[in-house]
């Protein structure tokens, strides 16, 4: 009996959370799980704060979770992790991309990008802060940052038995397959599981 697990992916419109969740949910379906995935279209996509939820288990009912219900929070942007942190279970994990995108008030100089976010998150929960942008740039395409984060996520959720490379082959355009597979593997090794972790 596989208890339902909840993944919350958050970021900024245009960061590729939708492709990441597509790869994730496809892999989970192929592994035989019941899966529900929920995302928001429309106005929020125009540079706003976006979230996608993926839930999997033997039988999933609700497509969305509320405060205090996520097993893992994967944030594609640093400040977004803080915005959504209360959605995580206190014993949940956070994978945070060390990558900052200023929102409109910050770009206009009306507010400052908050400092010390990583420290707050590390103090509150089991967190992995990774520099997915740096890894992606080293691989030759900053856009694969999202797949680096997928790699970190599947490792953190102990979902490495699923053939993610195959999922990527069937999801992304042919010329981007190799770099995305590399990104996935780099993401998996970017995460430190420490002593206490294994699967959530």
């Amino acid at each position: 009996m596989a208890e339902t697990k909840s993944i919350l992916l958050v970021g900024v419109g245009g960061q590729g959370t939708i492709l990441a969740s597509k790869i994730l949910s496809t892999g989970l379906v192929e592994a035989g799980y019941d899966v529900k995935m929920s995302e928001i279209h429309g106005m929020a996509q125009r540079g706003g704060s976006v979230s996608t939820q993926v839930r999997y288990g033997d039988e999933v009912h609700s497509p969305v979770i509320g405060v205090g219900e996520a097993d893992i929070l994967v944030s594609f942007e640093t400040m977004e992790a803080l915005r959504w942190l209360d959605y995580l279970k206190p014993e949940g994990k956070a994978v945070v991309n060390d990558y900052q995108i200023g929102s409109a008030p910050i770009l206009m100089g009306k507010a400052d990008y908050p400092e010390g976010i990583n420290e707050i998150i590390e103090e509150k929960v089991n967190a992995n802060i990774i520099d997915a942008a740096k890894i992606a740039v080293e691989l030759g395409n900053p856009k694969v940052m999202n797949i680096v984060l997928v790699g970190a996520l599947v490792k953190a959720m102990n979902l490495t038995d699923i053939d993610w490379e195959d999922v990527i082959r069937n999801t992304v355009k042919k010329k981007f397959v190799d770099i995305n597979i590399e990104a996935l593997n780099k993401g998996m090794s970017a995460i430190s599981l420490g002593g206490e972790t294994s699967a959530i």
Binding site: G13, G47, L82, D86, P90, I120
Partner: peptide, 20 residues
């Protein structure tokens, strides 16, 4: 009563949608 992560959310700056 459910336990939730308690932290200072006021640090988070708004992120409204914008024209591209």
């Amino acid at each position: 009563e459910k336990s939730i992560i308690d932290y200072d959310k006021s640090k988070v700056v708004n992120r409204p949608p914008t024209l591209c």
